[in-house]
Nucleic acid binder design. Structure first.
Length: 678
DNA sequence: ATGAGCTAGCTTTTT
DNA sequence: GCTAGCTCAT
């Protein structure tokens, strides 16, 4: 008998979305409408109904976290039947899996390394240097973002169509060519390549495309509004044979356009796939009516959206509170007081402060430290981006993959082996001229006795050690954890950390210990390195009862009983840069961000702004965000935390023309007047 | 080959 | 006001 119990607690729209499984389907899922539930139930339904074996289902997410969550929830419904879901993962991890099988089709070996943004930047700097490009005039970051943009468009260097109005692009293209060749020489790919190479392989080898597209009877995509052009092409290839593709997303929550996401993919899905069925999930299970109304009214100001009407059967709840403060300090103080009050009804884990820019957390941190309120900051520096962790990984990578020059370069003088810039340059030159790896070049130069004696000593030791570690790994079959321990000890890295006794170094040692323990979750070096390349953080730190601080971007997909949204000031939110760079489009994305922020709240939402802020070394006077004027009065409770005796003519909704110059002389005079009245 | 000293830039950051 | 990243001097 079929166990379809999991279908019982779905509403009508959800039910339809779960059981409509043949043909293209777009699920427009509003915030808190049970999108993950629908996705996981769909997978379970397909398997239970014997429409597909688990390994014939392709389920794609953007983050590892979302993939993991989906896996867990499917397992909960299906038990061990869900074990064969081998194609559930992120765009990048699935692409890497495919690419490892067909690496030779693009000139790579199957053990290729995956480099991160840091390595990308180093590579581009190296190339710029070699090509005599002044990095002060042309910043490596701009070059990199151009290359990434081209890759997102699906362009190899030969495919690039230059924008004639940007005369610099010609230079960028030269670098792109060298960069791409260099990656092949290094037997490496960057993130963009993982997907781009796959698409190119599918394009050029119809037989390979067919293998996969025939295999994937059903395709499911999460957060479809965040896909870029190349990802949508990738999906198109894989969906070619069965044409059973379902995408879930919310156009109102598209906040990653600066990462190449094209909301167009979502809005024009039914143009790419004929006879698309569209189902809307509009019942919200998360927030109170007041919160929902505020968010809905705000987002209605956007032009480019599918449009939907979220509703809830839940209670009205508290009014959304809107607070005006004189200073950021007042804001932090009052919010911390409110937290103390809410603590009686909610756990700190269920409260969050969501900010536009991460520097805003500082004021709160200081306050919380002062009053001893436990907090955690989510985001910021990622675990795998820390220098000591990257050093460890680089050691492992060079042992594992001898063409990985970037890793070799990273560790060649860490710890210090008296191999300075000149020697490194010498090795680089030699490698380039003879088309060999840095490691091979170093060996050759020693043979030819062209290295300074002192440097030679250090270099020989390192080269011998690398040989030895490879032998440990390949022949002696020493496990990956033990291997790293051996490397750290023999290279002198451990000693280096122990010698310098300060807080910083103790942290580093702690981090490495954590890395070693994280390695236990993996069977071998290969799978660990794959994970490291595609992951950013180690799951942890949810222990204890702490208030959460994070950016609104980082809050997507999460929910909290109580949410604080401070710093709603013109210039900060919507961010000035966003508007300067992308105009109306930028503004709409900022508004979507506000929408994401508000809809994180289940029971209580507090929006606030400060009249005054210390920003980039100066005190600046602030105006309330234009978004505040867009919120519906009837769902708000306004609190003015400015002493009325001192300022008589303060009005909550300042009647200011935003479209003109924000810091017009008149505006400045007005602000001065306010100040002198204080 | 390390550190003082200066300058520029300062949003978000799923992989 | 802070800091990363580079330059120049030791």
């Amino acid at each position: 008998m079929l166990n379809l119990e999991y279908l019982n607690d779905l509403n009508e729209a959800q039910n339809e979305a779960v059981s409509y499984i043949d043909g293209p389907l777009l699920i427009v899922a509003g915030a808190g409408s049970g999108k993950t539930k629908v996705l996981t139930s769909r997978i379970a339904y397909m398997i239970k109904q014997k429409r597909a074996f688990p390994n014939q289902i392709l389920a794609v997410t953007f983050t590892n976290k979302a993939a993991k969550e989906m896996q867990n929830r499917v397992s909960k419904i299906l038990g061990k039947e869900a074990t064969g879901l081998s194609w559930l993962g992120t765009f990048h991890s699935i692409s890497a899996k495919i690419l490892r099988k067909h690496a030779q089709a693009v000139g790579l070996k199957s053990n290729f390394s995956i480099i991160d943004q840091d390595d990308q930047l180093r590579l581009i700097k190296n190339i710029s240097k070699a090509e005599n490009i002044d990095i002060k005039k042309i910043s490596p970051n701009v070059i990199l973002s151009t290359i990434d943009r081209w890759k997102n468009k699906g362009w190899y260097p030969d495919d690039v169509i230059l924008n004639k109005r940007d005369h610099l692009e010609k230079n960028f293209l030269e670098i792109y060519k060298i960069y791409q060749n260099k990656l092949i020489d290094l037997n490496s790919t960057d993130f963009g390549d993982l997907i781009l190479h796959c698409v190119k392989i599918f394009e050029r080898n119809k037989d390979i495309e067919e293998i996969y597209s025939k295999n994937f009877k059903y395709i499911l995509v999460d957060e479809y509004q965040d896909t870029n052009h190349i990802q949508s092409k990738w999906l198109l290839s894989l969906a070619k044979y069965h044409n059973n593709i379902s995408c879930v997303g919310d156009d109102d929550q598209s906040i990653y356009s600066w990462r190449g996401a094209e909301i167009k993919n979502f809005l024009e899905f039914d143009k790419i796939y004929e006879n698309t069925k569209i189902i809307r999930l509009e019942k919200n299970y998360r927030s109170t009516q007041n919160i929902l109304s505020v968010a809905s009214k705000l987002i209605e100001n956007n032009q480019s959206r599918v449009g939907k009407n979220l509703f809830t059967n839940g209670e009205n709840g508290d009014l959304v509170s809107l607070n005006c403060y004189r200073s950021v300090k007042d804001e932090a103080t009052d919010i911390s007081d409110k937290i103390e009050k809410y603590k009686k009804d909610f756990s700190l884990n269920n409260m969050a402060i969501l900010v536009r820019a991460i520097f805003q957390t500082r004021e709160f941190e200081e306050r919380f430290l002062k009053i001893g309120l436990p907090y955690r900051i989510i985001g910021g520096i990622k675990f795998y981006e820390r220098a000591e962790i990257k050093d460890c990984i680089a050691y492992l990578k060079i042992v594992h993959q001898d063409q990985d020059d970037l890793s070799f370069e990273r560790i060649i003088n860490v710890p210090k082996r008296s191999i300075g810039e000149t020697s490194l340059k010498q090795i680089n030159e030699f490698a380039k001229n003879n088309k060999i790896t840095l490691e091979a070049a170093a060996k050759k130069l020693i043979e030819k006795n062209e290295i300074k004696p002192k440097t030679k000593l250090g270099l020989i030791t390192l080269l011998n050690q690398i040989e030895k570690w490879r032998n440990d790994f390949v022949n002696k079959k020493i496990g990956h954890i033990k291997l790293l321990q051996i490397i750290l000890d023999e290279s002198g890295y451990s000693q280096m950390l122990k010698n310098k006794k300060d807080l910083e170094n103790e942290n580093r040692i702690e981090n490495i210990k954590e890395l070693l323990s994280a390695m236990k979750d993996f069977d071998n070096l290969e799978s660990f390195l794959e994970h490291v390349s595609l992951a950013t953080s180690i799951d942890k730190n949810w222990e204890g009862d702490k208030i959460n601080l994070m950016s609104m971007h980082a809050s997507k997909g999460l929910e909290f009983d109580v949410v604080f949204l401070p710093g709603w000031e013109e210039g900060l939110f919507p961010h000035q840069k966003s508007i300067e760079e992308k105009g109306e489009k930028g503004l709409e994305e900022e508004r979507r961000l506000a929408y994401v922020g508000i809809t994180r709240a289940k029971k209580i939402a507090n929006i606030s702004f400060s009249m005054n802020r210390f920003y980039q070394g100066d005190w600046i006077d602030c105006l309330a965000s234009r978004f505040i004027d867009e919120l519906p009065e009837e769902n708000l409770k306004k609190n003015n935390h400015i002493n009325h005796d001192q300022i008589e003519d303060f009005e909550f909704n300042q009647d200011v023309e935003f479209d003109g110059e924000i810091q017009s002389p008149g505006w400045k005079r007005y602000q001065k007047k306010l100040k002198s009245n204080r």
